[in-house]
Design a protein around this nucleic acid. Sequence first.
DNA 1: GGTGACGATGTAAACGATTACAAAAATGAG
DNA 2: CTCATTTTTGTAATCGTTTACATCGTCACC
Lengths: 364, 364
Amino acid sequence: MSRPPLPSESPPSAPPEQPQRAARIEDVARIAGVSTATVSRALSDPERVSPKARARVMEAVAQVGYLPNQAARSLRSQKSRMVLVVLPDLSNVFFSRILQGIEDVLFEAGYGMIIGNLDGSPEKEARFAAFMATGLVDGAILLNGHLVGQTRDGQGSPAPLSVPLVALCEAIPHAGIPQIEIDNRGAARAATLYLARQGHGRIAYVTGPAGNSLERERFAGYRDGLEQSGLPFDAELVVPGDYTLASGAAAAEALLRLKRRPGAVFCSSDEMAIGLVGGLAAEGIEVPDGMSVVGFDDIEFAAMARPSLTTIHQPRRELGRTGARVLLDLLAGRRAPAHVRLETKLVERLSTRPAGGRSVTGSG
Amino acid sequence: MSRPPLPSESPPSAPPEQPQRAARIEDVARIAGVSTATVSRALSDPERVSPKARARVMEAVAQVGYLPNQAARSLRSQKSRMVLVVLPDLSNVFFSRILQGIEDVLFEAGYGMIIGNLDGSPEKEARFAAFMATGLVDGAILLNGHLVGQTRDGQGSPAPLSVPLVALCEAIPHAGIPQIEIDNRGAARAATLYLARQGHGRIAYVTGPAGNSLERERFAGYRDGLEQSGLPFDAELVVPGDYTLASGAAAAEALLRLKRRPGAVFCSSDEMAIGLVGGLAAEGIEVPDGMSVVGFDDIEFAAMARPSLTTIHQPRRELGRTGARVLLDLLAGRRAPAHVRLETKLVERLSTRPAGGRSVTGSG
DNA sequence: GGTGACGATGTAAACGATTACAAAAATGAG
DNA sequence: CTCATTTTTGTAATCGTTTACATCGTCACC
């Protein structure tokens, strides 16, 4: 096709006022002297193109700084190379390292990560569900323990699980969704056994929120531990909490009100354990001399706390990594394990000591 | 084209095996008896469509559960309604609340959030830069203190800043990018003045990493504070750190080696302050009786620490919110402020006390 | 009743890639 | 050298929207 002749003063070398429109595949094709199909192939699957053409394409790409438009790409290919990560609370330190692990693996595989921070809002939940249904993401990792956007408004069909999902940490009661988790029950048993072996006969337990699936497991583990140690279960020693610092402090008061105080406490979260230590200190009871305390999670701060906290270490980053890997398997159509359990580890620090023994570190 | 006759048992009312293809705008249009243009208008700008048509469209949408395909939408409209947030380290607790603030505002405005975790990797940086250039995101918020993907490989043109940007916390030396930050210098001055007013004559300072733009400001503020209090500056009292717990602990040792010990220390981060407290305790010096300590940031743990930490509170969530708002202004073509400064606040807790006074809380 | 303005609607052309299909070129066997 | 086969390339359809432009009524005003 012939164009109208250009004004004589405009050599094609450097058009001055043009606002730098991003280069398209067509531009690359023209410069390289091939078709757009060849350019596309050279970029996505270099083997399918002759070395000569490939070189010309690469040169043209470099010359114009071509980057394929993502919207066009994902419209046509029906893949977005994006993953949604849904979590209940972005500001909760517990999740940040998991996110990091997820990001590690996703990035490596060329995927991006969209964050869905639920924050207790049903609106958010609905929107994130839409993310999955509109092709915005190829899959999702759920850290929130339940399915997202199960809205069946009006006569609408039961929202189809449009993309592959993976559940991290909390179990989702839905068949066919791989679960990545730790052995909460076994870990809680280990913590309880540890205290029992240190000679503590009355071991209290500060729970997480009722109804939480993790919590049920941990509570079961606590009872396992008691049983295995030949200790009696005493409902009086079970104090309700909700994983927060404040509930740990409240638990301290509750425990001190008991006629027969426990010599040790196992808390279902580090935050509660730290709150408990503070609450005990306010009443003049120092940890570990006055009481031994074990936490759960091994958050960053557990090691910094005073006294540093004996706790159950969860491999958070590795949990994230594994979850991402399993999702990638699903996305690639590979067979994925239905269930992965990661090892926990009891980390001994200074918030526990044998019952009846004397403190090793003389305090002031 | 004629198909082979179906087995008689399959009436067309409910095709059983069809894998539930997502409804397209065309389906909605057909059911509502209007054109696709009208459907599009009814959804994006209901005012432009007659009430009758609107109602029919809405009904059809509900009936088939239509959700517009994002890729198609953003391909055509050249807008993705996504924002990239770039940060140096996702696992750093300092950022999580900022992220939360950003997410708050973005969600409200109908935007999604893609996370770019740099993690010190140039590859990541390049990829995130590509996110901006490929239409994947409409804008970006940078928490990392420098421009992303400034790669000018080969003869490539100087990567055009393709989308609106906002710099949060750290300043980016580049004209035209709005900066959202706190008054680091003023806050550091306030912390120093506070200690001076408590009667401390020798006030040490534990720095952040050299070369950091925040750090320069804070150091200047420390000197301002000394000057304003009529105290001499003593280079011996400036101990290098890098914001980490470990460097705080190391600083403790350094300070204890001095012939004339300071009575108070101002640390450029809470983590260092907490490390310092631990390091001092290891040498038998308790805070605040043996030394007063002030931190910076007011991270979650500052209040939980023992002793709880006097520190400079940064409105992290609000920083995130403001950054997101400014970016939205930019995206909407509204005039955005070039510079926003948020207020900090000195939070008095138990890691400081007047010089020479006696401790109020009797320990042990 | 004619005319202009306005609002509601429809038609069809983008947006920028990927990819099914067909054609052309290269390769190898006989 | 011919023919079958394989590789490489090109053409054009396609993904599912939005939106410029054209069209068609409707209404008010003269």
